[in-house]
Amino acid sequence: MQLEETINERRAALGRDPVYLSRYGRPLAEAITDPGKARGNDDTGDGSCDSGWCMT
């Protein structure tokens, strides 16, 4: 979260839009409500490869 905040502070100083380091299109502090459970059960198991752990 600190990295994302630092990046966005620098982007704001340059007049650029924020970027987010999650696939949810919002800040990590909002996207992941419990950092201890950051790897929750959002994997639907439908065969798509969104997690980056495909075929491992």
Rank of each mutant, 00 (worst) to 15 (best):
G25P: 05
N8G: 05
D43I: 11
P27N: 02
K37T: 09
E4F: 03
M1G: 04
S22A: 06
S48D: 05
C54V: 14
G47K: 07
P27A: 01
L3M: 03
R23V: 05
Q2E: 02
C54N: 14
R39P: 00
G15D: 07
A31T: 02
R16C: 01
D34C: 00
R10P: 01
I7L: 12
A13S: 13
I7C: 07
L28Q: 04
L3H: 08
D43K: 09
Y24V: 09
E4H: 03
T56C: 04
D50R: 14
L3N: 01
R11H: 01
D46K: 07
D42P: 12
D46Q: 02
T56V: 09
Y20T: 04
G36N: 13
R16I: 00
G45N: 14
T56A: 05
M55E: 11
N8R: 00
N41K: 13
Y20C: 06
T33K: 10
T44H: 10
G52I: 13
T33C: 01
D34R: 15
P27R: 01
A29P: 00
S22M: 06
I7W: 06
L3K: 08
C49S: 11
A38K: 11
G15P: 10
Y20S: 04
I7D: 10
Y20P: 01
A38V: 11
A38Q: 07
D17G: 06
L28R: 01
T56I: 08
E9C: 01
W53M: 06
S48P: 00
